[in-house]
């Protein structure tokens, strides 16, 4: 049995079915991301003045990733336009660039995540608080793990204080490498989602967004590669598939356009 309205317009909706379906799906996605955005804004606005951590994220890297995603949205729409003009080879090139951009985005994001997982907050028994890196850049190190490994001391590189940013700790701490006795440490934790409210929301929002990037890139890749044979048998339906995947991709990129200033700049 043939699936109806995959290429032709359905008279009562004025759309082909897949387009109606993707918009219903995107409506649910807006509710999901909207709820998380609202939570972030409520927590941000409700925080005591001067207590919200700022400057924890790498703005140049975030800017680069934003440019990469904007480029991918341009190529996704140019690919669709190329199909509309019967230029399959051009479509192949544009969508290939889209997939490449998605890969670049994920690689950069993984570097950003790694940077957080090797960044540590230390509180000593005398109340001194510092942020920085442990020698050797281990990931997810904790005080319990240090004790388990029988490490009596470790080398710590405190961050240089930034005049324009309100970071936790490092106030009055000399920016010099030091050896810390494990017995003197009261708290040691990496900058994972458990560290503070900001990082919890940062990881929740960006990881959810990254899952969407992976999902969208996989769908675009499937249409671009293994399912490209449909262009010969049913070009109109194939073009519609590309449009639907492009709509999803635009949504994912639009989410990032909101995420970037909210998380990195404000």
């Amino acid at each position: 049995m043939e699936i109806p309205y995959t290429a032709k317009i359905r008279p009562d909706t004025g759309l082909y079915n897949a387009k109606l379906g993707i918009w219903l799906f995107l409506a649910s996605e807006i509710m999901l991301f909207g709820a998380l955005f609202s939570s972030y804004i409520l927590l941000r606005v409700g925080a005591e003045p001067g207590t919200w951590p700022q400057g924890l994220l790498n703005v140049p890297l975030g800017t680069f990733n934003t440019l990469v995603l904007i480029c991918s949205s341009v190529t996704v729409v140019l690919g669709w336009a190329a199909l509309k003009m019967n230029q399959f080879n051009k479509y192949r090139i544009y969508q290939g660039i889209t997939i490449l951009c998605a890969l670049i985005f994920m690689v950069v994001k993984s570097f950003e995540y790694h940077d957080k997982f090797v960044h540590y907050f230390v509180r000593l028994n005398d109340g001194t608080e510092m942020n920085g890196h442990i020698e050797g850049n281990p990931m997810f190190m904790t005080l319990a793990k240090l004790k388990q490994q029988n490490k009596a001391e470790f080398v710590f590189h405190p961050d240089a204080p930034k005049a324009d940013h309100k970071e936790e700790g490092n106030a009055g701490v000399a920016h010099a490498t030091m050896t810390i006795q494990t017995a003197d440490v009261r708290k040691l934790e990496s900058w994972g989602p458990w560290h503070n409210t900001f990082l919890a929301i940062y990881f929740t929002l960006t990881a959810l967004h990254a899952l969407h990037v992976i999902g969208g890139a996989l769908v675009i890749f499937m249409i671009w590669g293994p399912l490209a044979g449909m262009w010969k048998t049913d070009p109109e339906r194939y073009t519609n598939r590309v449009e639907v995947s492009g709509l999803f991709w635009h949504f994912v990129d639009l989410v990032w356009i909101f995420l970037f200033p909210v998380l990195y700049l404000l």
Partner: peptide
């Protein structure tokens, strides 16, 4: 996708000037 792309380009332009 054409209409959505125009919305996207508008948002990107605002972001670029804001940034």
């Amino acid at each position: 996708l054409k209409a959505f792309h125009i919305i996207f380009v508008t948002a990107c332009t605002l972001l670029a000037f804001g940034f």
